[in-house]
Design a protein around this nucleic acid. Structure first.
Lengths: 155, 155
DNA sequence: ACGAATATGAAATACCCTCATCAACTGATA
DNA sequence: TATCAGTTGATGAGGGTATTTCATATTCGT
């Protein structure tokens, strides 16, 4: 069993922390209807229990010249573990690849890449992804607009 | 002009804050080679300038029973703005849809959905997405594993 | 090169947070 | 009913932190 037993107050805490992690314990306590000490203990338990992860600050991609989202499907030459690990290391080491999923179906991986423009993506695709030993071929899809982006998992 | 003029210290600050937003100004100052007061002022400027967004706490999806990622391509019946807005409101109001992009190519939208299991997804698809007035059809792809998930945009 | 505008580091202050302690409360069990 | 383990809220000490102020340094346009 991997999941964590959450009571309603835990869920409220998680919902708030996922949207506004810089809230004070006092304000959080008021919002969830508990004492600050209790909130503190619960957060600590959720933390050590592996439910809560990092606290991160979000950055507006457009404001730093990374406004273009590209989704890249990748098919591997072979499915052997060595090739997969090699590709996954490649993904891990490239900071413009924000997300990567191993997929069911006709494609092996799906990547979300943030780049400045199409030329920027062309560089990554031609000199990075497609030249990787383990990659057979790929298919790219460009986002016209980001309609929704949330990091908050429903709890 | 949409982008923000960032100097090397700003970039260092952004890189750190995107990975560890709960760092103290003193520790941040040491890491970037500036004073705490200067860091504080830079963060404030990045904040009001719209570069920095929310501070959020990440939650391990598996630990809260949302371990399955599904990608859903959606094609619209029509491309008129009213239908689009209606669908985008639908997406916005469904918390299990974490990401949604308006796409170029044969599909109009790409959604990332987090659900507990396939049955859970079936419910959303059949009683939510596919019954939406503006939706013509859709295609779903299941992630076997999350290889990389980062919120840190390269700066 | 000059002055104006702006950014800087150090210091000071008031605030908040972390964490421990304690007594009261809850719920399950025998 | 008595007991026991776990949880709660209140409280307080202590240490650390955010934020302001101010004098100095740096940058920028002309």
């Amino acid at each position: 069993m991997n999941t964590f037993n959450l009571d309603p107050v835990d869920r409220k805490i998680l919902r708030i922390l996922q949207e506004q992690a810089d809230i004070s314990h006092a304000a959080l306590a008021e919002a969830v209807g508990a004492s600050a000490a209790s909130c503190w203990r619960r957060i600590k338990a959720l933390d050590t229990g592996g439910v809560l992860g990092k606290t991160v600050r979000l950055v507006n991609p457009e404001m730093v010249g990374r406004g273009l989202n590209v989704f890249c499907h990748v098919r591997m030459k072979s499915h052997d573990p060595v090739a997969r690990r090699s590709f996954e290391r490649f993904v891990e080491s490239h900071e413009e690849v924000l997300e990567c999923y191993s997929m069911s179906g006709e494609w092996d991986y799906l990547l979300r890449v943030v780049v400045a423009d199409v030329a920027d993506y062309e560089r990554l695709l031609m000199h990075g992804i497609l030249t990787h030993d383990a990659v057979a071929n790929s298919s790219s899809h460009f986002a016209l607009k980001s309609v929704k982006y949330s990091t908050a998992v429903p709890v």
